[in-house]
Amino acid sequence: MQTPNELKYAPSHEWLSEDGTVGISDFAQDQLGDVVYVELPEVGRIVTAGETVAVVESVKTASDIYAPATGTITAVNDALSGGPELVNSSPYEDGWLFKIDVTEESAELLSAEDYAAANN
């Protein structure tokens, strides 16, 4: 399982980069299986940490995606509408979900080391 050290992780398996990019972890995409659809939030939406902001559907199940921080959605990954499998093949690069202008991070965010320990 890849767990890049520069990211912070929510217990619900979302990751947050320093620039506000959000996606789901390698562990989460593996557990979901083949992703077939991603419902992304609207740009400009104000979200609160812990709020449901997106949905990832796989051949197995649908999973809510929660905001790892409070802020405003500034961008979404439009490439996922035609290629939702990017979430599986590149969860930390091409398969990112959305970007948020962070005003406050969730107090529950974990370091890569703590997240990996909790999911092994």
Rank of each mutant, 00 (worst) to 15 (best):
D19L: 11
D19T: 15
T21K: 13
V22F: 04
G23A: 09
G23D: 07
G23Q: 05
I24C: 11
A28S: 09
Q29D: 10
Q29P: 05
Q31K: 12
D34R: 07
V35M: 02
V36A: 12
Y37Q: 12
E39M: 13
L40P: 06
P41F: 11
P41M: 08
E42K: 15
G44F: 13
G44M: 12
G44C: 09
I46K: 15
V47D: 02
A49M: 07
G50T: 07
V53W: 02
V53S: 03
A54G: 10
A54S: 15
V55R: 03
V55I: 15
V56T: 00
V56W: 02
S58C: 08
K60V: 13
T61A: 15
T61P: 03
T61Q: 12
T61G: 04
A62R: 11
S63Q: 13
S63H: 08
Y66C: 01
P68M: 03
P68S: 09
P68D: 04
A69G: 02
T70Q: 09
T74P: 00
T74K: 06
N77G: 10
D78I: 11
L80S: 07
L80G: 10
S81C: 05
G82E: 15
G83N: 15
G83R: 13
E85R: 13
E85W: 10
N88R: 07
N88D: 08
S90H: 14
S90N: 12
P91E: 05
P91A: 05
Y92Q: 08
Y92M: 10
G95V: 07
W96K: 07
W96T: 01
F98H: 03
